[in-house]
């Protein structure tokens, strides 16, 4: 292999500028965090709502929620990015369409966050639904029998148990958000993958570049994993083993 190694490349200035390559990667890292965390927040809120609606006795609401999940789950993320970026603005009313295309601030960032948030929300919704459906049906009845309305039954009885149960599968989704955010480079968000490609072309040090990028993504996903593990420990219920919410104790 005739590769010229240069691990000092990160501190060298970029061609025709006074930033270093490290600056590029760190700005990219910042945008990756911004897109991922905003998308995750959105995915959690929408996902819990949609997953809950899928389990309600109301047929229209459950059908609407099911349609939501299928829509965002069955189209490749990259295609969804292009749809939101190139197609959706064309379908808006004329005035709004022009504004989105020409004047909307942080257009790439907003589009990418919206797209990733909706995509992930469908996955969160499925986990939440599975969690609620895994609870004994008597829990819903016990809530209602006490005089709770259906929303109160969800708020005080079903969701606290279901959400505790789905923390482990949600951990994977949280980690996936960081990894999936790399797709945003396709619509021009200056996130980590975008900056990496730029650095690779500019410096011709591809191996060092992608080594650093890999490390940064790994740190994100690993931190997400640890945060969720902490939440799992903090919300553990005394006398209850993990996953036991789903079963009855008969002795």
């Amino acid at each position: 292999m005739n590769y010229h190694w240069n691990w000092g490349i990160f501190l060298e200035p970029v061609k025709g500028g006074d930033e270093t390559y490290l600056d590029w990667l760190l700005t990219g890292f910042g945008w990756t965090l911004a897109v991922s965390l905003s998308a995750w927040l959105m995915a959690l809120m929408l996902g819990i709502l949609v997953g809950t609606l899928r389990t309600t006795p109301s047929k229209p609401l459950a059908a609407l929620a099911a349609a939501w999940v299928e829509l965002f789950r069955n189209i490749p993320l990259l295609v969804q990015m292009f749809l939101w970026f190139f197609v959706v603005p064309e379908l808006l009313p004329r005035e709004l369409s022009l504004w989105v295309k020409q004047d909307m601030p942080a257009k790439e960032f907003i589009t990418a966050t919206l797209c990733l948030g909706l995509f992930t929300s469908s996955r969160v919704a499925e986990q939440v639904r599975a969690g609620i459906e895994a609870l004994p049906s008597g829990q819903r009845m016990a809530g209602l029998a006490l005089g709770f309305t259906l929303p109160q039954t969800y708020r005080h009885v079903l969701l606290p148990c279901a959400l505790r149960m789905v923390v482990p599968p949600l951990t994977s989704e949280f980690m996936n958000v960081f990894k999936n955010s790399s797709v945003a480079f396709a619509i021009g968000v200056l996130e980590l993958t975008f900056q990496a490609r730029q650095m690779q072309e500019d410096s011709e040090q591809g191996i060092e570049t992608f080594f650093a990028v890999t490390l940064l993504y790994f740190i994100c996903a690993f931190t997400a994993n640890r945060v969720m593990a902490l939440i799992e420990r903090r919300t553990r219920v005394p006398g209850q083993m993990a996953g036991q919410m789903a079963g009855h104790q008969t002795t």
């Binding site: 004994p136 008597g138 829990q139 009845m141 016990a142 809530g143 209602l144 029998a145 006490l146 005089g147 709770f148 309305t149 005080h156 009885v157 606290p160 148990c161 505790r164 219920v237 209850q240 036991q244 919410m245 009855h248 008969t250």
Partner: peptide
């Protein structure tokens, strides 16, 4: 809901709320 609040019900599998303490189960 108002009617059910006046009718106490006890289930085969107890159906206490597992994430709440006994006191919370009784006060909520």
């Amino acid at each position: 809901p108002k009617l059910r609040a006046q009718v106490g019900m006890v289930f085969q599998h107890f159906e206490l709320f597992p994430h709440m303490s006994i006191t919370e189960n009784l006060t909520i």
